[in-house]
Design a protein around this nucleic acid. Structure first.
Length: 265
DNA sequence: ATGTCGGCAAAATGCCGA
C-alpha cells in the first residue's frame, strides 16, 4: 500500500506531469495540494482514465486539495477544518481509502511575517492540532499528508542552508513549535524517522537555480498515527519529478505500508 | 532586495501568492 503527497502547483497546467508520475509510481492513495482551480474545472476525466477515483475541494486561483484512490472512490469524511466558519480557503479534505483514514492538508505559507498571513498560519495550525487530537490514537491507521509549509529543523535533512531563510515563515520557531506539538500527540514523521541525517527535500523554489544546486527544503510530510506507523515499510521522495519539463516546485513524497494483519475472530 | 513560476483579469502586460 503506497500513499503519496504531491503539491502539484496548478493541476490543470500539470495534468501531463501528474499522469506520468501516477503511471510510474503507481500510488494507491494520493493527496494533492495547490490545485489552483475551481471545483468545476478539476481534471476528473483524465484522472479517472488513469484508474483513480477522486474527491476534491477547489478554489479559483489559489489553494485547493484532492484525494485520489486507485480503483476506488475515496469515502469523504470531512472537508475544511473545524473551528472557523469564516475561513473559506480550500486547504483540508479527509477520506477513507484502501483501509486507511487519510487527511490531505495544505497549511498556509504564512509569508510575509510578521503580519495577518503569519497569524492565519498559526491559527490554522492550532485548528489542525485540535482536530488531529481527535484521531491521533485511534485503533485504525491514520495518515495526515500534505504541504505543511514547515521546515522542521535546521539540519541538512530538512534544508540545504537556513541562512537565507531565517526570516521566512517556514522556519520560524512558532511554526516549528506547532509542528512539534502536533507530533507530540503520537504522530510519526515517516520520512524523518526512516532517513535521519539524509537530505530528503520535497521543495526547490524556482529562484536562483535552486533545483540545479539541490538547494531544497523538506516541507511536505506524511504523519502516521501509531497504528499506521506499526505498518510502515518504506518512504521516499520522487525527486526526478522535480527535474521533468515544466515541473511543480515540489516533488511527491510517499510511504508504503505493510498489508493489514487479519483481525482474529 | 532579488530571483521564477501559475493563474487570471483584461487585453500582451500586470498583479497576487508562493
Amino acid at each position: 500500500m503506497k500513499i503519496a503527497t504531491f503539491n502539484i502547483n496548478g493541476v490543470n497546467g500539470r495534468v501531463r506531469n501528474l499522469l506520468a508520475w501516477l503511471d510510474a509510481a503507481r500510488p494507491d492513495v494520493v493527496c494533492l495540494q495547490e490545485l489552483k482551480t475551481s471545483s468545476a474545472t478539476f481534471p476528473l476525466a483524465a484522472i479517472e482514465r488513469a484508474g483513480y477515483g477522486a474527491i476534491w475541494s477547489g478554489e479559483k486561483s489559489y489553494n485547493g486539495v484532492a484525494i485520489l484512490a486507485r480503483d476506488q472512490l475515496p469515502l469523504e469524511v470531512r472537508r475544511g477544518l473545524p473551528g472557523d466558519k469564516k475561513d473559506t480557503q480550500s486547504r483540508y479534505i479527509e477520506a477513507a481509502a484502501h483501509g486507511v483514514l487519510v487527511a490531505c492538508l495544505y497549511l498556509p505559507n504564512g509569508n510575509p511575517r510578521p503580519g495577518p498571513k503569519f497569524d492565519y498560519k498559526l491559527a490554522w495550525f492550532e485548528r489542525l492540532i485540535a482536530h488531529a487530537a481527535s484521531f491521533a490514537t485511534r485503533a485504525e491507521p491514520v495518515v495526515m499528508a500534505g504541504d505543511y509549509n514547515v521546515v522542521p529543523t535546521d539540519g541538512v535533512a530538512d534544508i540545504y542552508n537556513p541562512r537565507s531563510w531565517l526570516k521566512d515563515a517556514l522556519l520560524q520557531p512558532e511554526s516549528r513549535e506547532a509542528f512539534r506539538r502536533l507530533l507530540a500527540q503520537g504522530w510519526i514523521d515517516a520520512i524523518a524517522e526512516q532517513h535521519p541525517g539524509e537530505p530528503m527535500y520535497t521543495f526547490w523554489d524556482y529562484f536562483r537555480q535552486h533545483w540545479q544546486r539541490n538547494a531544497g527544503l523538506r516541507i511536505d510530510h506524511l504523519l502516521l498515527n501509531p497504528a499506521a506507523a506499526k505498518r510502515l515499510k518504506a518512504s521516499g521522495v520522487d525527486r526526478d519529478v522535480r527535474g521533468a519539463a515544466k515541473p511543480s516546485d515540489h516533488a511527491p513524497a510517499w510511504i508504503t505500508l505493510k498489508a493489514a494483519r487479519r483481525t482474529s475472530r
